[in-house]
Each structure stands twice: as C-alpha cells, then as structure tokens.
Amino acid sequence: MTAGTKFAAIGTTAHVLVTRPETLPAAGTILRWFIGELDLACSRFRDDSALSELNRTGSATHPLLAKAVEVALRAAADTDGLVDPALGTYMVTLGYDRTFAEVPREAAVSVTIDPPVGQAWRDIRIAGDTVTVPQGITVDLGATAKAWAADVAARRIAAETGAGVLVNLGGDIAVAGPAPDDGWSVRVTADHASDEGGQVIAIDSGGLATSSVTVRSWRRGDKRLHHVLNPMTGLPAAGIWRYATVSAATCVAANTASTAALVLGDRAPDWLAARRLPARLVATGGAVTTVAEWPEEES
C-alpha cells in the first residue's frame, strides 16, 4: 500500500509517494523543506535568490547553487552542450522572463535572436561554493535543477524513513528505497498534469523524465515558442518531437537525455540507443518511436 501527497511548488506540482503510509508526514516535510531551499538558491524568478544575484553581478556564493550549477555543467559536458545552462538571456529575450504562469501566452511583437557565439557554459566557474559567470551570461537551471532535486529528495526521504519513495517534481520522477511489488506505475504523457493518453509503465529504480514542447509554449508574433532551446540557434528546438521520455539511473540523467532528444530531433533515437537509454519519443503527428527496450504499448 502506498500513500502520497501533492502540492504546488516552484511553478509546478510536487508529488511524493511512500510505501509506508505512516512515513508520509515526514516525507512531505522533507520535500517541502528541500524545495524551499532549492527555490531560494536556484530560482530565476525571485530577486532574492542566489541565482538572481549571480545573473545580476556575475558572482554568487551559495552551496546549493554551486551544486546545482555543477550538475548543470556536467549535463552540458555529457551532451557536448546540447543541454546548455548559459542560454538564460535567450529565454528572457524570447519572453520567458517571469514565472511561466505570468508569461503572456500571446503578444504581437516579434523577437529577433542572434545565434550564440561558442559554448559560453564552458566559461562558468565554480570555486568552493562560489559561482562566477562571464559578463553578459545569464544562467538558467531549468533543464536540470528540478530533476536533480527530485533525485536528492527521494534519496533523502528514503534514507530518513526507510520507506520506498517516489518524488515527482513537475513530471521529473526519481525513486529510491524498496519499490512496491511490480514497481511504481507511471503514466508518460505530454503533460504531467494529464490523467489520460500516453502509456503506463512501471519503474522500480532510477529516474524517469519527460521533456515536452507543448506545455510551456507561447506565441510572439507569428511564431510559436517553447522553452527547450537549441544552443546552436538560441531559438526553440525544431518541433520534430512533441515529447520525449527517458529512463535512466537518475532523474537528472533522464532529464538531460530527454531534453537533448528534443534538441537533436531526428538524430535522437540513435543518440539514445548509443547510450542504451530506454526512451519513448512521440512525434508531433503522434507516431511513437521507442528505443533501447522501452516496453511495447499494450493494445
């Protein structure tokens, strides 16, 4: 028997489930506390966050921010920059300059973007708890911080309570501890808030993440924009895939790969297969491509 609690946090929903219901209060407390700390360190949308200070001044000292930036830089290195934390300026120019609930979904203005020069993320430095960025670089940890937080929180809660734990932060799922019999059943779909469509699968360890171009999308002029940017152009990745779901040993590895898949477009299946990452890619027309032993859909 499992028990869970769900609440709004960091512009999305947080959901924690445990295999021992009596541990749920502690699990919820730990998750709320950790998300609060994460928000204070890594939010791009609150002036008092360490990340805002970093983007304003070029330097900030905060242990949690330093760790989150380190994780983001590893993701960038692992993907040769496909998942780039230094594209914050482009995100702001495109209109995603406040918490997404407040971003106007339509505006008559058109946006002009000059392609990024080089891979600016390589110039981000971490020394101890201090992060420094070159002038003009805005860091955006949206691609990795949430998934990493799910990993950390799940492990923490499992260690604290001894229960099997699933933490879902806006669709980024990490599990830890002993899973229920037959695993945790999870629907993979375009929108984590949806109760229909997609496919239901079971996982018992690691992480599962889905990146989608349909949920956080808006229009500027005649262009439909979304939040997964191509680091080569500074523009939203071409919409070959509507969403991509990846299973990996950790949630942050899964999220890194699912984000990279959207950027890679038609090269994504080979890229994922080479890394033996089970994945399910859904094209804009609805066709499903599975990779690396992702289970077939039951008719």
Binding site: T2, G4, T12, T13, H15, L17, K146, L166, N168, L169, G170, G171, D172, I173, W184, S185, V186, R187, V188, T189, A190, D191, H192, A193, S194, D195, G198, V200, L208, A209, T210, S211, S212, V213, T214, V215, R216, Y243, T245
Partner: peptide, 9 residues
Amino acid sequence: PPVTSSGGS
C-alpha cells in the same frame, strides 16, 4: 493504474 504522471510541466 498509474500513481503519478511523467510529462512536460
């Protein structure tokens, strides 16, 4: 039945 969903947010 699913206990939670993975999707875009």
